[in-house]
Simulated scan of single mutants.
Amino acid sequence: MRRYFGRKLLIYGLTFFVAVTVNWMIPRFMPGDPIASMVARANVTNAQAVEAMRAYYSNLFGLDQPLWQQYVNFWGALAHGDFGISIWLFPTPVADVITQAVPYTLALIIPSVLLSWVVGNQFGAYAARRKLLDNTVLPVGYVLTAMPYMWLAVLLAWGFGVLLGWFPVAGGYSFSMRPNWSWTFVLDLLHHWALPFLSLFLVALGGWAIGMRNMIIYELESDYSSYLSALGAPSRLIRRYAFRNAVLPQITGLALQLGVLVAGALVTEIVFAYPGLGSLILKAIQNKDFFLLQGTFLFIVLGVLIANFIIDIVYVVVDPRTRAGMAGAQA
Rank of each mutant, 00 (worst) to 15 (best):
P31G: 05
A284W: 03
L60C: 09
M1S: 13
S37N: 14
G159S: 15
A324S: 11
G62K: 05
L305D: 09
I98G: 08
P275I: 04
Y173H: 15
N245R: 00
R3T: 15
R129L: 01
A329Y: 13
Y241E: 09
K283R: 08
A146D: 02
F272I: 10
L258N: 06
L298S: 12
L187A: 13
D223Y: 08
A329V: 09
V267G: 04
A42R: 12
G259H: 12
L190K: 02
V260F: 09
L256N: 09
F61A: 10
I109S: 05
G13F: 12
M53E: 07
V102M: 14
L292S: 13
V169L: 02
F291C: 11
Y241S: 04
P234E: 13
L292M: 14
F309Y: 11
N43K: 07
P139N: 09
A146T: 05
S229I: 07
D319A: 08
N135L: 13
F123G: 01
G120P: 00
A246E: 10
Y57F: 15
L277V: 09
I217Q: 05
L60R: 11
A125L: 04
R28S: 02
F201M: 09
R178H: 08
Q70R: 13
N121W: 03
Y56C: 06
F17E: 02
S112P: 00
L144S: 03
